[in-house]
Write a protein that binds this DNA or RNA. Sequence first.
DNA 1: TGTACATCAGTGAACGCGCGTTCACTGATGTAC
DNA 2: TGTACATCAGTGAACGCGCGTTCACTGATGTAC
Lengths: 204, 204
Amino acid sequence: MAKRGYHHGNLRQALIDAALELIEAKGPTGFTLSEAAKQAGVTPAAVYRHFEGRDDLIAEGARQGFEMFADLIQYAYDKGQPSALAAFEATGRAYLAFARKHPGHYIAMFESGISVNRTPELAAAAARARGVLEQAAADLSQHIPPDRRPPASMFSAHIWAMSHGVVELYARNTGTASAFPPEDLLESGIGIYLRGLGLIPPDD
Amino acid sequence: MAKRGYHHGNLRQALIDAALELIEAKGPTGFTLSEAAKQAGVTPAAVYRHFEGRDDLIAEGARQGFEMFADLIQYAYDKGQPSALAAFEATGRAYLAFARKHPGHYIAMFESGISVNRTPELAAAAARARGVLEQAAADLSQHIPPDRRPPASMFSAHIWAMSHGVVELYARNTGTASAFPPEDLLESGIGIYLRGLGLIPPDD
DNA sequence: TGTACATCAGTGAACGCGCGTTCACTGATGTAC
DNA sequence: TGTACATCAGTGAACGCGCGTTCACTGATGTAC
């Protein structure tokens, strides 16, 4: 591999990666700083050269997760333009794809119990992600007659809730498995919801 | 209080209650067997007269949660009869009410990381709860033209996902607070979804 | 190009702690006679 | 009603463990001259 001497070379990121892998494998409960250090090939004490402690390490994993997440859904959103509907649906798919592909990040972000307001950087990353989702919802809202239009933030919250629910209940191996692939479940769920808003035709 | 002697009287349930309170207060991570024992006014070793260990204690809390949960939504469902729509909406409200009123149970059930298949009793309680939700969805499905009718289990999964998502993201003090009360958020979300299925009129 | 030295990333030993779990025990309860 | 005894719920001391964290240290790196 890369550098294998007294100095690691890129220990900081290696520790974050190890932490995320462990969180994915054992849940936020099972994750320990010592084990992350061991997995990075380093003494537990070395962690303190780069992080304030255990929680700081998790928080940094979560922050990187929110950054990636925001990037991904922003990209999906941009790619769906200029169609508000296409952009919106792309962000929904990107949501689930992120949770699938980066479960360690997802868990650190939403299930580790660390507050999103722990550091300004973390809060900013989370706000950026929420911003993209709300923007996609707001764009699409424009196509709803004003008198039947829910606030964009409510619209967005509904979609986020359903997405998160699908991830937690059906895209994990918790035993609550469903007969349907999570992707299909979320896509059909969002489809029905959008139909309810009059955003896609009643029968297609 | 009750009995305060050498023999506790109802230690088993007292331990479960203490565990659920601690889980509510500190998350599944923060919960320890020793602390639950302490809170029940008893030595940690006494726990082993009633439970196999820490996980068994959590599992029993989850089981009682699923039983209560199933009872509550069954009751809501029955009360909404004979209207399939009223019954369905009542189960949705009961879902959130349960999560609000019994956060310790809810966390033990869905966030503690214990598998629902850990014991037959736990699996049975969880299956009973799922059964009621699916029944409510199946009844309501009858009012959808067959060619536009999704499988009842998918319908039910959508609703469960949105409900769970609302609980996790907006009915906890995780900092991801929304501008809307969770009850309103869930009710409006389900309403839009049902409209998408053609189950409630387009504009009311 | 070679040497002296400052910088700093990682070591390894040590700590105190609270955990889950075990064990032989003891005190309270309840039942048989 | 009173006594002997079996039952069993809880005690308290002990255990080994791995945790997060600290500290003085040392080995590697890179820069000044």
